[in-house]
């Protein structure tokens, strides 16, 4: 564990807290992509259910995995049950087939071993890299976003962004190098760059997140 990875994980926790805060205080999921949330639930299920076959690294690791699986299911429940009337499916139209299909193909090409657990792990990594796209698509379509929603997306982007200095640190300090995680992680971070540009130039200067 190093400071970058710890801050990244912390940022991930903050993002989930922001999302839950937005939904429970406004009693709505307006502007939130159910599709992105469903993809994250799938990402966590395919990566973290390695708990079931004994992949226990530390209490920290196990507790985080359980939290991410549990909170993602709870978020899906909130969107689908109590806040269902506030969701507009007509703007959440990104085609999931392409993302899931692409991640599946990548997991068969790029994995560390042709075994079920390793392919599942690789699938979850590639799927996570693109899971935010339906959410960014909603923001692009509507041309704006509530500030709290942009803080959520920013915290999520910071999470994977912070993993990059973590990988640099681990490469030099520990000789650890995980090329699949690194390449997918860089792709994931690049996907956020456009968003971050507007977030830093507008939202953090007190303006509303609006596309030109």
């Amino acid at each position: 564990m190093n400071i970058f990875r710890f801050l990244g994980d912390l940022s991930h926790l903050v993002s989930i807290w922001l999302l839950l805060h937005k939904m429970t205080t406004s009693k709505s999921c307006t502007g939130i992509s159910f599709k992105t949330q469903a993809l994250y639930a799938l990402v966590f299920a395919t990566r973290y259910l390695d708990l079931l076959y004994g992949s226990w690294h530390s209490m920290y690791n196990v507790a985080m995995k359980i939290f991410f699986i549990g909170s993602s299911l709870y978020i899906l429940y909130l969107i689908k049950v109590p806040f269902k009337p506030t969701r507009d499916p007509a703007i959440d139209t990104f085609k999931l087939e392409y993302l899931v299909g692409g991640a599946l193909i990548m997991s068969l090409i790029a994995n560390y071993e042709y075994s079920f657990p390793e392919i599942l792990w690789s699938f979850s990594i590639w799927l996570e890299a693109v899971a935010i796209l339906p959410q960014l698509f909603i923001i692009q379509r509507t041309g704006e976003a509530e500030n709290i929603t942009t803080h959520y997306v920013a915290a999520l982007g910071a999470y994977r962004g912070l993993y990059i200095p973590n990988w640099l640190y681990r490469y030099f300090a520990e000789g650890f190098f995980d090329p699949i995680a690194v390449i997918a992680g860089i792709i994931q971070t690049v996907i956020y760059l456009d968003f971050f540009y507007i977030y830093f130039t507008k939202v953090l200067k007190g303006q509303k997140f609006e596309l030109p």
Partner: peptide, 10 residues
Amino acid sequence: STMSADHDEL
């Protein structure tokens, strides 16, 4: 066998 990282990251 495997060059797999230990997958100790989240």
